[in-house]
């Protein structure tokens, strides 16, 4: 395990405050340690990959971070604030957006409504406004409507605004989900296996999109992936997780030649 935690982005001074700091994170499912002693730091505007074989605990780390699971031990700090014990909607309102491995759009409503509801924590009206459609509510709703449409236009998805997600192709659904995660103006974007089920052409488009999102929205992006070739092409820094621990960390080049990684992926070609 390498202790080298400094970011590899040369423009990023090493002493900058980390955006996300996870220390000694542990989580048990019954007696099984899904995550054991996980440590990491992410810095603003980084693009970091978290890889590992199936069952290594990658998604568990994301779920712990979002508050969907409560960590058994350890500390999660986002922008200096401790996240342990907060409920998921509180955590994500602080500026953490995420997508899911198995796309979790709301299928019973339009794409536009999917984006509108993600504005939930930004709505500045209360229950009484909602019951009477007050002018304050309508002002707020108009703004949300415009913002959601603007975001869709930016992603080139505006022609799908009124469609329901199940009618869209898989690749488009992935883009809509990333779009929805950006609604809450996140500073940290978590992508959980964004390339799952995609062919090579779609993967290439996706990698381009990820770079574009990072530059356009100035977010830190943390990607989970178990296909090496996906993550090698996009991340500046890669962490390798196996049995709930980080076994290696470094640039794609370093990871490719790391004997621990080759061992963890035994039988798979590391390219």
């Amino acid at each position: 395990m390498t202790d080298e935690r400094a970011p590899h982005d040369p423009e990023q001074p090493a002493e900058a405050a980390p955006l996300l700091e996870i220390s000694h994170l542990k989580h048990y499912f019954g007696g099984l340690a899904a995550v054991s002693d996980f440590n990491t730091r992410l810095y603003p505007n980084e693009l970091v990959g978290l890889i590992g074989p199936n069952g290594a605990g990658k998604s568990t780390v994301f779920n712990l971070l979002c508050g969907l699971y409560r960590p058994s031990e350890g500390d999660i700090r986002f922008d200096g604030q401790r996240l342990n014990g907060l409920r998921p909607h509180q955590i994500t309102s602080l500026g953490i957006g995420r997508t899911f491995q198995n796309i979790r759009l709301w299928n019973g409503m339009s794409v536009l409504d999917n984006l509108r509801i993600a504005h939930f924590s930004q709505m500045n009206y209360g229950i009484l406004d909602a019951l009477t459609l007050s002018s304050r509510l309508r002002r707020s709703e108009r703004k949300v409507h415009e913002e959601a449409l603007d975001l869709l236009r930016l992603f080139g998805l505006e022609q799908h605004a009124d469609e329901r997600p199940p009618n869209l192709s898989y690749g488009v659904q992935r883009r809509v989900e990333i779009c929805r995660a950006l609604v809450m103006k996140p500073r940290l974007l978590l992508l959980d296996e964004p390339a799952a089920g995609m062919n090579q052409g779609e993967i290439n488009d996706l990698l381009e999109l990820i770079h574009w999102v990072r530059d356009q929205f100035k977010v830190t992006i943390w990607i989970i992936e178990h296909q090496m070739r996906v993550i090698m092409g996009v991340c500046e820094r890669i962490q390798v997780l196996d049995f709930g621990k980080i076994i290696a960390e470094g640039t794609p080049e370093e990871i490719r030649n790391n004997p621990h990684v080759i061992e963890a992926y035994l039988g798979e070609e590391v390219t």
Binding site: C66, L68, R87, P88, H89, T92, S93, R98, F100, R104, L105, W106, N107, G108, M109, D113, I117, A118, F120, S121, Q122, R180, A181, V183, M184
Partner: peptide, 17 residues
């Protein structure tokens, strides 16, 4: 409606479910 469709997604998308 988001709660009906997918409660976990709703919670993660900042809805105080």
């Amino acid at each position: 409606v988001a709660i009906r469709e997918d409660e976990i997604a709703a919670e993660v998308m900042t809805v105080n479910t």
